[in-house]
Design a protein around this nucleic acid. Sequence first.
RNA 1: GGCCCCAUCGUCUAGAGGCCUAGGACACCACCCUCUCAAGGUGGCGACACGGGUUCGAAUCCCGUUGGGGCUGCCA
Length: 503
Amino acid sequence: MTAPATPPRARFAPSPTGYFHVGSARAALFNWLFVRRHGGTFILRIEDTDEARNRPEWTEGIVAALDWLGMEPDEGPYLQSAQEVAHQAAIEALWSAGALYACSCTRQEIDARIKARAAAGDPTPGYDGHCRDLGLARGDGRALRFRTPDEGVVPVRDLVRGDVEFPLRALEDFICVKGNGKPLFVLANAVDDRTMTISHVIRGEDQLPTTPRQILLWNALNEAEQAALDLPSYAHLPLLVNESGKKLSKRRDPVAVEMYREQGYLPDAFRNYLALLGWSPGDQEILPVETLIERFRLEDVQRSPAYFDVKKLSHFNGVYIRALPVDRFTAAARPWLDPVPGEWAPGRWRDPDTGAPATVPPPWPEDRFDAHTFASLAAVTQERVAVLGEVPGLVDFLFLPDTPEDPDSWQKAVASDHEAPRILETALAHYETCPWEVDALHRVTLTIAESVGRKLGKAQAPIRVAVMGHTRGLPLFDSLVVLGRDETRRRIAAALSRLPPAT
RNA sequence: GGCCCCAUCGUCUAGAGGCCUAGGACACCACCCUCUCAAGGUGGCGACACGGGUUCGAAUCCCGUUGGGGCUGCCA
C-alpha cells in the first residue's frame, strides 16, 4: 500500500500566474519528496492553455523558483499548449464514442433555468442537460459537454483522505471542450496524465471536486481508445490558509516565493518549513532534506488545512543561517550587500499586483562597500539575523560616510540622557590613547561607566548611538575596532557638536 | 442552495483503544547569561469543538450537532 510497485511518475502542474505561489511550492515539494523517496520521476508540466493569461517569462519564473528550492524536475518543463495533437485526438475519440455532445446554451440561459428550477422548488444545481439529446452538430462555436451518468457514484480513492464518493446525480454534464475547439483544463489535464503515464496525482485539496470528472473522462477515454490505462493514484493535500482560515489568496496574503527569496530566506530553510505544512517528520523538525525524503509518506499527510506561519519560518531561517560556516554566510549575504553584476540580486522583483519591492537596496553608495571590512564582522552579524535582508541594517555604520540617521535612537540614548555629553567627552578623550582592541575598549569604557556611576550596559548607549546610529546592533567594541580609532572619534566629536556642552 | 472535505495548545503538529496527569516546535511570559540586540539555558502559560453511543477502558472507533473550509466558469 505504501510503496508503489513500480517507480512512481508524479507531476507538478502549475499554471503560470506571474509568480510562484507558496501553495504551489508546497505541492511541488510533496510531489518531489514522494518521488525522491521511491526513486521515481518528478515531472514539471506547465498548464498554459489559457492564452488570455500566460507569458513565457512566467514559465521561466516557475523553473527558476523550483531551481532555487533545489527541486529540479527530472522531466520537463512540458508545455500543455504543446500537447494539442493528443488533446484533439482525445476529443475525436470521445466524440466518436458518443461520450460528448454539442451544446448551444448560453450561460445566461442556463442561469435563468437554474433560477426557474429553484423557484419551483428543485434545488438541483448546474446544467440541466438541455442539449443532451438534441443531436446538435459540432462547430458554430458550440461547446462540447460530457454525458455524465445520472445514477450511481464515482469513488475516488485518495491516499491522503481515504475513499470519497461523489454522487453522480449532483454532477452536471460538464463542458470539456470550448466553443473554439480547445480542451478545458479538466480534459487536458487528464489527457496529459495519460500521455505522460502519470502514476500519482498529488495536488491541492481544491482539486478534489474535479477528480470525479477526471475519472469519468479517464474511463471514457479508455473505452473510446480501446485502452486500459490504470487510473493514477490520487493524493489531495490540505490547503494552505491565512490567519482567518481561508485559502491563501494573492490579494491579501504574502504568497510569492520570489518575495521570500528577496527578503533573504534560505532555500533549504524555506523548503524545510514547507515540508512541515501538513506533514511531520517527528519531534525533530529541522532536518536535512535527505532525512525528510527518507521519512516522507503520503499516508502521513494531514487532512486539515495548515496556516502558513512566517514567524516560524523566520525562526527556521535563523537556525539555518547560524548553522552556516562563516564564509558561506558571507557569500550568502553578498547579494544584499554588494550585488555582483550579472548574478541574482534582490531588488529586481516587484509584486505583479502592487508593484511593491520586497527589499530596499543598501543605504550606502556602492563604492563604499568593502568585503574585507564586512568579513571581519560577519561572524557577529550572522548570529543576529533571521533573514539575509537584515544584514545591511546591521552593518550600515561601516559603509555610510557618517553615523546612520536614526532619530528615535538619538532621542532615546543621547538627547534625553543628561549624562550623555559627559560620557561622550570622556570617551573621546580615553579613546585617543587606549589600545585599539576589544578588551582594552571594554575596560576603558567600563571605567567611563563607573565614573558616571552606571553599569556598562547603560553607559555604552550614547557611544553606540553616536558612532553606530542605533540603540541596538552589533557588539560595540568589535564594531569600534573595525571602524577605526579616527573615525570613531570623529563621530563622537560630531555627536558632541550637536549637543549643548556638558556642565 | 447543492456536492465534498476538515475538526488536539494562539499556530504547525505527535498521537493509529490502555504507554496520555496528551509529547515536540513556533509564538508569548518569567528568570539566567550579557556592552545593546540577538543567540543560548531554565521554567511557565496553553489543546483533545459539543452531545450521544461502542468498550472493562476513547483524543483515538461509530452516529449526530455545531463550527470552519473547498468546489460549484466555454479559468487552471
